[in-house]
Amino acid sequence: MDTREIIGWNLRRLRVAKGISQERLALEAAIDRAYVGRVERGEENVTVATLEALANVLGERVAELFVEPAKDAKPTPPLRAGRKRKPTA
Rank of each mutant, 00 (worst) to 15 (best):
L27W: 14
V62S: 01
D32N: 12
A70R: 06
T88S: 09
R15E: 12
L25N: 03
L54P: 01
L27M: 07
E28I: 14
A70N: 06
E60G: 02
L25F: 11
V57Q: 03
G37I: 10
A29H: 00
V46M: 08
A49N: 11
T76R: 14
V62F: 01
A17W: 05
R41W: 14
A81F: 11
R13G: 12
L79G: 09
L54K: 01
R13T: 13
L25H: 05
K86I: 06
A29N: 00
A34S: 08
T50A: 03
G59R: 15
R33C: 01
N10I: 08
Q22Y: 06
E5M: 07
W9C: 01
R4Q: 10
A63Y: 13
A55Q: 03
Q22M: 03
R80Q: 12
K71W: 14
T76G: 15
A70H: 14
R12A: 07
A81M: 10
A55R: 02
E5F: 10
V57R: 03
E23W: 07
P69R: 13
I6R: 01
R15Y: 13
A73R: 05
R85D: 06
S21E: 07
V39Y: 04
G19F: 05
L51W: 08
I31Q: 12
L58Y: 02
T50F: 02
R83P: 10
S21K: 10
K86N: 05
G37W: 07
